[in-house]
Nucleic acid binder design. Structure first.
Lengths: 207, 207
DNA sequence: CGGAGAATCGTGATTTATACCTAAAACCGG
DNA sequence: CCGGTTTTAGGTATAAATCACGATTCTCCG
């Protein structure tokens, strides 16, 4: 049912020498690689948010690495980004990190260093994706609820008794029971506790 | 009951000129300031984790800013840290940011820049503290439970019915009911949903 | 127009949870 | 060893939730 896609290392760098070198390095350790010459090219190609991580050059003609990062964030991408840069620029590094980059390393670097960070990023991505998949499943179930069922759900999760909910929504207690039962069914909740868990998971996004 | 302490800006810098200048600047905008000459001095003085933020020099004789940050993290401090540094050093900035610093700015900087970031940090701290206070209250209640009550709580939150819990723990259903009632009382939970919320809040630490 | 899905309400039986009373073992620290 | 806490348990009554089986509107869509 849930397909665990193999993670891919995406490389975006305008320097073809760097692209080739990284492709070789990553290939040599058995990691699937895809390289792109510009941020725009990557954006155009990667519309389906595949698992992996992104090794991104900061300084590029056209769209800079930071700009690409912003665009990816707007797209709600969770792809961990490792920046690489030739010139040490502290404000840039700070901005990148504040925007969620997992790492920011300067050239020249040792191959093993980069590989270590890539592996960390891939692990992080796998974890994020598991959480996201879980949340998306719950969201789908939530969307299958009718407006009325959703109202009842909210009050149930708020801890109100059926009688109170009936009063709040100006319904008979019986009707509330029906909605509530259907909510439990549609949400595939085995218990009230489970239902609350699920709703909190998507409404109160965590770590 | 809950006392909202006024936030303090802590400054740790070995350069007395910087300390004096920052003290004046912050005083001029009405922010309480306390300055320290070294990381150790700050650690010794601030054992009670007061609200505010920390403006921290990276390069200092003895304990470096990064070392102080590590020690504060070990102490589970949530004080937001703004690093200031004279020399741009990207790896240092990255390390600081990865360790949770909110900002990392280079000298020279405009006063207003620093003030802006300090205000951001203070807001963040206030938010963190509200969450932390909430969690600590819940933790205290959890600690007031007897071991048996805690067991029952866990199973209740797992969504099991009293009958099942009784079976699992080899108790009469009646006893489970008693423990459960006492749990609700001690946790000050108004409903099962509320109880689940509280337990998740401390066990599944969020954003 | 006929039917599907949504929303509404009822009765009665059953299961669960709570509330309030009492109380006896077991255990632990002074 | 006494006294408090913890853990255990029963009885009775009420309240809440679940379920079984049925039923009436309404809208929207082909």
């Amino acid at each position: 049912m849930i397909k665990e896609q193999k993670p891919t290392v995406f490389v975006v760098d305008d320097d073809s020498a760097v692209r080739d070198s990284l492709r070789l390095l990553l290939k040599s350790v058995g990691l699937p690689v895809e390289v792109f010459e510009s941020g725009q090219e990557f954006l155009d190609a990667e519309r389906d948010d595949r698992p992996g991580c992104l090794v991104l050059d900061i300084r590029m003609p056209g769209m800079s690495g930071l700009e690409l990062q912003v665009k990816l964030n707007e797209r709600h991408s969770i792809l961990p980004i490792i920046f690489i840069t030739g010139h040490g620029d502290v404000p840039m590094a700070v901005e990148a990190m504040q925007a969620g980059a997992v790492d920011f390393i300067q050239k020249p670097f040792r191959d093993q260093d980069l590989l270590d960070r890539i592996n960390q990023a891939l692990e992080k991505d796998a974890g994020s994706r598991r959480m996201l998949a879980e949340r998306n499943m719950i969201r789908k179930r939530l969307e299958s609820l009718t407006p009325r069922e959703r109202e009842v759900l909210d009050l149930v999760v708020a801890g109100k008794a059926n009688k109170v909910i009936a009063g709040d929504l100006n319904l008979s207690q019986r009707t509330v029971e029906i909605h509530r039962a259907r909510v439990m069914e549609k949400m595939e909740a085995h218990s009230l506790a489970h239902l609350v868990r699920m709703v909190l998971e998507v409404e109160h996004p965590e770590a």
